[in-house]
């Protein structure tokens, strides 16, 4: 498979609703994915992200609204003719077929001749770095390798859209990062429109062009990773997209007073009164003077260090800082804030 120009398919969700008995999984989802774009659906379990993906695949029938591929409604197209490439969370390889036979399956369904089938399957395996494993069975491969095969199997038919349903969540941390980057590389190379479902914010932010944070069947916010991280539109998003400290304070006039420090609000239109500010660990610094705190623990994270401290009133928070500082446990330190706008907890 050679690199191709982005000729991906445009995907549109319009007011898509999926009603289960006693539970609304999708509640009017609107989503527009540009050709060749990589969009991640991010959210806690039960937020409807997987249902959205499965609805696009045709594995779930939507109750209301429409899903368009390049402008045409797919409601009448059954799964097996929708031309989606899908990678599942795990165990999706056919156990009785070799790796090569697995990859050939979709081509066989499309009545591709044996010779060309073999060549294309081998190319696809080559692309995911498993060219030599064609004769093996699924159980002889590691989890990461299995997912690579699943990726090759999903892509070999050159589908309109690549659907990734938490494909990395069953893998070890290291393999996860590796494969995640590789998926992105291949996606860019092929220019294929991709929808990626995950509950891991780091994963979503790392690979996607845009991330849609979902909550209770709705898209809470959609935007580029930087936008989401720096300008979360709600406490839910702020909380979900990064580790946050919760600091009680008092709102007045678009700012919040936290332990005597005034911090600007992301959404200043907020009635005055008590509230809880969400402050990121990297927005807290050690300083010569400021809010006093006692060091509880400190951990080395490679490029940086994260230290947990307790304020006088018992509030605990995390501070992220360079490795040149290594505070001793029990030491008294002083904290300052960078002054980046903060979101408020609900």
């Amino acid at each position: 498979m050679t690199a191709s120009t982005p000729t991906g398919t445009r995907v549109q969700f319009r007011a898509v609703t999926k009603q289960y008995p006693g539970h609304r999984a999708l509640d009017g989802v609107d989503l527009d994915i540009a050709p060749g774009e990589f969009v991640a659906l991010l959210g806690p379990s039960g937020c409807g992200k997987t249902t959205a993906l499965r609805s696009l695949a045709g594995l779930e029938q939507i109750t209301d609204g429409e899903i368009l591929l390049d402008g045409s409604d797919v409601a009448a197209t059954p799964v097996n003719r929708r031309d989606m490439g899908m990678v599942f969370q795990s165990y999706s390889l056919f156990p009785h077929m070799t790796v090569l036979e697995n990859v050939e399956f979709g081509l066989r369904m499309r009545k591709v001749g044996a010779a060309s089938r073999r060549t294309r399957a081998e190319e696809a395996l080559e692309m995911v770095g498993l060219g030599v494993h064609g004769k093996r069975f699924a159980h002889q491969l590691s989890g990461g390798q299995q997912q690579r095969v699943a990726l090759a199997r999903a892509l070999v038919t050159r589908p309109k859209v690549l659907l990734l349903d938490e494909p990395l969540s069953a893998l070890d941390a290291k393999v996860r990062v590796q494969l995640r980057d590789e998926i992105r590389r291949i996606q860019l190379e092929l220019g294929i429109t991709t929808l990626f479902v995950t509950h891991d914010q780091e994963e979503a932010l790392a690979v996607a062009d845009r991330v849609a944070v979902m909550k209770a069947g709705r898209i809470e916010q959609i935007g580029a990773p930087e936008d989401l991280y720096q300008r979360p539109s709600s406490a839910f998003v702020a909380d979900f997209v990064g580790v946050s400290n919760r600091l009680p304070g008092t709102v007045s006039g678009g700012e919040i007073d936290v332990h005597g420090v005034l911090l600007p609000l992301l959404a200043p239109a907020r009635p005055d009164g008590a509230a809880v500010a969400l402050v990121r660990p990297e927005d807290v610094r050690f300083a010569a003077a400021g809010v006093a705190a006692t060091v509880l623990t400190t951990s080395f994270l490679g490029a940086l260090r994260r230290t947990r401290v307790a304020l006088a009133d018992g509030t605990e928070l995390a501070v992220q800082h360079g490795t040149e500082v290594a505070p001793a446990e029990g030491a008294v330190v002083h904290l300052a804030f960078t002054g980046a706008p903060v979101a408020l907890a609900d």
Binding site: A57, G58, L59, P78, V79, N80, R81, R82, D83, M84, G85, M86, F88, Q89, S90, Y91, S92, L93, F94, P95, H96, F105, G106, M109, R110, A150, R153, A154, T157, L163
Partner: peptide, 27 residues
């Protein structure tokens, strides 16, 4: 029998009969 196999077969273009014939029964 994993439901994913049926779903994978379907997204790859297989019908229900194809699933049973090529995957379900052999497995």
């Amino acid at each position: 029998l994993k439901p994913q196999w049926a779903e994978a077969s379907a997204t790859l273009g297989g019908t229900g009969a194809v699933f049973w014939w090529r995957i379900g029964f052999p497995v």
